[in-house]
């Protein structure tokens, strides 16, 4: 469904953050990218979505090469991206936020129909339809972001740390929503810091280190893998992890 090959991405001045990454996500699948701060997780998603100044490699969507397409073309083609934290429009109402999600839809009847569909999925958005989005709680804002994305009926959704800043109960709810969307046939590619819960909700996972894929496996195997455990969840006291150079987990 979504496939990136040899993707290199970075910013001005030759700062390469993501270095030759191969990654894919298939329909019906939740794929999670984990890695420490600065590993290049967010830049990887931005690189796929053509939002960084420096990039090389290839990106294909549904078998078609889309590397050079602008973000709005990618979105129209079925690839959606939810950036990290606060991608709502704070001083637009919830209803206006949803309508902006369908900005590229020319067919107003279809837009209204789809808004009805996502409102059925997220009833809280109906209750607060005429309020400024800034007034929503963190969890509600995340639901609004996801709902807004669904208006373009994407085949692939990339989410950058959907659980960040949320209470544990809401984290479960967000991952449940991600699972549900995968079961509806979408490919879900997310970046997460909440490694345990994210992998538990995923089919496959990638471990990114210094801009390169270090490990790639089924999510349950990664969860059980000592290297993942040690590096990204902190060393377990008396655990089986070999006490290598970073027992505390580096910052």
């Amino acid at each position: 469904m979504l496939e990136a090959r040899g993707l290199t991405a970075g910013y001005g001045g030759g700062r390469i953050i993501v270095d030759g990454v191969d990654i894919d996500a298939r329909a019906g699948e939740v794929v999670t990218i984990i890695g420490q701060n600065g590993a290049g997780k967010s830049t990887l998603l931005k690189g796929i979505f053509n939002m960084v100044p420096v990039r090389r490699g290839s990106v294909s969507l549904d078998g078609a090469e889309v590397f050079d397409q602008r973000p709005d073309r990618l979105l129209a083609g079925g690839l959606a991206y939810i950036p990290q934290n606060h991608s709502i429009f704070p001083k637009l109402t919830v209803a206006e936020n949803l309508r902006m999600g369908g900005f590229l839809l020319r067919d107003q009847r279809l837009l209204v129909e789809r808004i009805g569909e996502v409102e059925a999925m997220f009833p809280i958005l109906v209750e607060r339809r005429d309020e400024y989005a800034a007034g929503l709680s963190g969890g509600e804002q995340r639901m609004l972001e996801i709902a807004r994305t669904l208006l373009m009926a994407p085949k692939v959704i990339m989410l950058d740390e959907p659980s960040i800043g949320l209470a544990p109960r809401l984290v479960d709810q967000v991952f449940q929503t991600v699972r549900t969307l995968a079961e509806q046939g979408k490919a879900m590619l997310m970046v997460e810091q909440n490694v345990k819960k994210a992998l538990a909700a995923s089919d496959r996972g990638y471990v990114l280190e210094l801009g390169q894929v270090k490990l790639h496996d089924r999510a349950d195997r990664l969860l059980a893998d000592d290297r993942t455990a040690q590096l990204y969840m902190g060393a377990r006291p008396g655990g089986t992890a070999p006490s290598a150079e970073a027992p505390e987990g580096r910052p």
Partner: peptide
Amino acid sequence: NAEAAQVVG
């Protein structure tokens, strides 16, 4: 929110 505007196309 310029970034959010970009991701909604």
